[in-house]
Every structure is written in structure tokens, then in C-alpha cells.
Design a protein around this nucleic acid. Structure first.
Lengths: 147, 147
DNA sequence: GTATCTAGTGTATAAATTGCACCATAGTGT
DNA sequence: ACACTATGGTGCAATTTATACACTAGATAC
């Protein structure tokens, strides 16, 4: 996808700002490193923080709902090409249990079910956004308009 | 882990700034939505961008090297409590292949191997940092110092 | 000779994921 | 009446991925 010089620059700047915030956060936490809360604790906490994202499809489901807004079951299945309905069903249940996603049933028939990010899920999506943008640029999927 | 009011506020502010950058990036990309680069393309691109992270342990390895700095094989195994040496070996190979991690062999004996983030890996780590911090606060693993 | 340190590999087992058929419910078409 | 559509899933066998744990190699120390 080609974007204007101006927009490319805006995105680049935003990504660089986020890198800087990341650096700052790291530097603050480093100051608390002691015998109780050392590297081991930090790594543990990070692994724990990611435990919900670190199995296949969860992070993709989050990104999909963040990008596409609320969607129904079969719409998601279509967007996430390659996921089986079984896995999608299981993962959505997990996402709902962990408070990232809300499941809204609309009476039918046919009964329709809408999945939507909770505030927590939307926050996570926004925090993930800069990384996605960075990877898109890194993989040349987003390029500066030639000329 | 308890942090001072001041540091807690700094981290909170950084996280909120990142959310705002995420919102801005989203809003820029939304402007390019058309028949060629619609929701489908965006979701595809996001799934693709995450493909390296979306199997177990890859994101944890990245976070570990980001937090702990360069480490040797058995040090990482100790930090990532629960990973098998087989899986760690396979995942490190994948991370190296995808350019996130650098494998540096120091002549022995015994031969020592150091794993270190590449610039690309460090960028990804920094971009991931705010999300990790947000999750740590959300899970009350990082709290404001009482009083 | 035996033990120790390093960074892994081999392999059987367990867990996660997929593919595909299938279910219930109600509406529409012929 | 009968088939076909659409909805959101389940059930289950097969495949892929991860784990546990024994084991390797090369060199030094005891």
C-alpha cells in the first residue's frame, strides 16, 4: 500500500515516539531492579503478561477486531483466512474470558452473535498498533508514494 | 512491584501517549481504505506481520533478551522457566532466521553461544514495551507505592 | 577413569490446531 | 412437503507443534 510522503512521515514519527516511550519505561523499571524484583521477576512478569497473547490466533483476533471493528462469527472466520471454526470458537471464548472481547447475542432467527473489543481490548489493540505499523513498513507492505 | 507515585505517573503517561499514537496510526491507515486495500488487506497484513510472534515462546524470547540483554543458551533456559531445551533451540533458530536475534559463538572450550537482539529485534522490543507495562499494571503486578 | 561445563539433538509422548462433517433453528423457494 | 439458505457453532480423527528427558561432543579438572 502506498501512502503519501506526509502520512508516511507521520507514521514513522509516531513509531519513533513509541520507541522512545518504550525506552523510557524500560529505564524506569530498571531502576527498581533489586534482590526481590530482578531480571528473573521481570521476565516472569512479562511472560505472564503475554500468556494470553502467546498462543496462535489470539493476537490476530485482537488485531482483527481492532482494525475491522465489531464483527460476527462467520465474518471473522472469513477475515482470518485459514482459521478453523473450531479454533475460532475456542479462542473467542478465551478472549471473552480474559476480558479482551465482548460477546453480544442478538435474537434471531437466525441468532446473530457480535464480537467486539472491550475497553481493555481496545487499549491493547492501540498499544499493539505501532508494532504492527512498524512490521508493515519493515516488510515493505506499506511504502512511501513514489514521486 | 511498588513504584513511586512519580514513576507510576510517568509510566501511565507514556502508556497513554502510546495509545494516542496507536489511535493516530489507525486513523491514517483508515484513510487509505479502498477496493484494493480494504479491511481484508489490513487484517491479512496484520496477521502476516505477527506471523513470527504468534507461536508460543517467540515473543517471550524477544521480551527476555530485551529486558535481560544478551544471554547464553542455558541462561535463557533458566529465565524462561518451563521451556524445554529442544523448543528453546528451535525458537532461537527461528528468531535468528527472521533477523530478530543474533547468534554469537565464542570459542571455547567450552564453546559459549551468546544470543543478542539485532537492531530490528530491539526496535520490536521497545514497541512491545508499553503493552507489557500496561499488562503489568492491569494485572496489579506493578502498583503505586502506598502513601 | 569420572565428573563438570558448555550448547545443543533424538525421540517418544502430550497438547494444540486443522479439516471436515454435522447440529438446531427459522425463513424462502417450488 | 421438500430442498436450500443462513446463522453460530460441536464432534472427532488426523496433523502439527511443544514437552520431558535421556543423551551427545569436546575439553578441562580431580
Amino acid at each position: 500500500m502506498e501512502v503519501t510522503h506526509e502520512d508516511f512521515k507521520k507514521v514513522e514519527t509516531a513509531i519513533n515516539d513509541v520507541k522512545e516511550e518504550g525506552r523510557q519505561i524500560r529505564s524506569i523499571f530498571e531502576g527498581y531492579s533489586d534482590e526481590n524484583f530482578g531480571i528473573d521477576w521481570e521476565v516472569d512478569a512479562a511472560v505472564d503478561a503475554f500468556s494470553i497473547f502467546s498462543s496462535r490466533w489470539t493476537i490476530e483476533i485482537l488485531a482483527t477486531l481492532y482494525i475491522a471493528g465489531e464483527r460476527r462469527f462467520n465474518e471473522m472466520r472469513k477475515l482470518l483466512r485459514g482459521i478453523s471454526s473450531r479454533t475460532l470458537s475456542d479462542k473467542l471464548t478465551k478472549c471473552a474470558e480474559s476480558g479482551l472481547v465482548e460477546r453480544i447475542v442478538e435474537d434471531g432467527p437466525p441468532v446473530r452473535v457480535i464480537y467486539r473489543l472491550t475497553d481493555h481490548g481496545r487499549d491493547a489493540g492501540r498499544l499493539l498498533g505501532p508494532l504492527v505499523a512498524y512490521m508493515k513498513i519493515h516488510q515493505d507492505r506499506v511504502v512511501r508514494h513514489s514521486q
